[in-house]
């Protein structure tokens, strides 16, 4: 469809990140969380549970990948969580997809190496083409071993 996402640097691997079950948790958390109120320009608000270590994890991930949101939150992902996660002012690219994410990932990544970190609810069992990391939805990104991901992704693509 006629949606043109922003580009990444094109020089680093891409980390595709879902939000539900990754950044915020719907299920009973197994790690310490804080409840934050997120909003989209005041049009609506939700209270969501975000693990206390998610911001640090996300900063680490962004240090060796270009992060791309892939979520039903659309372009609100970055805006809604910017303060809570201390995100950069320039929004990361967004792919506004809720379920059939793999095709969008493959098209967007093209030849770049990628890791996809998401709730297992939206990851098909036969997902291939990159590094696929299902989260524990009670921990989200806070429970992901980023060192292991880093070791499996090339540092630079060129």
């Amino acid at each position: 469809m006629a949606y043109t996402p922003a580009a990444t640097s094109g020089t680093r691997p891409i980390a595709f990140l879902g939000l539900a079950g990754v950044i915020h948790l719907d299920d009973a958390p197994a790690v310490p969380v804080r409840t934050i109120r997120v909003s989209a320009w005041g049009w609506w608000a939700r209270e969501v549970a975000v693990p206390e270590t998610t911001a640090r994890q996300l900063a680490t991930l962004a240090s060796f990948t270009d992060v791309v949101w892939i979520s039903e939150w659309g372009h609100n992902a970055h805006t809604a969580f910017a303060t809570a996660l201390d995100l950069p002012s320039r929004p990361w690219p967004t792919l506004p997809v809720q379920f059939d994410k793999l095709a969008a990932i493959r098209v967007y990544a093209a030849a770049l190496p990628w890791v996809w970190i998401d709730d297992p609810l939206v990851i098909p069992p036969d997902a291939t083409g990159g590094l696929v990391v299902p989260t524990d939805p009670r921990r989200g990104l806070a429970g992901v071993d980023l060192a292991a991901i880093r070791s499996r992704l090339p540092e630079r693509t060129r």
Partner: peptide, 26 residues
Amino acid sequence: LHGDDHLTTTDQGVAMLRRMMAKQIS
């Protein structure tokens, strides 16, 4: 054709419902 949707600001409730449906399916 859900594959053609572009969920955005005003679709938060719809997206939450679809996600909860997917969880119940599972």
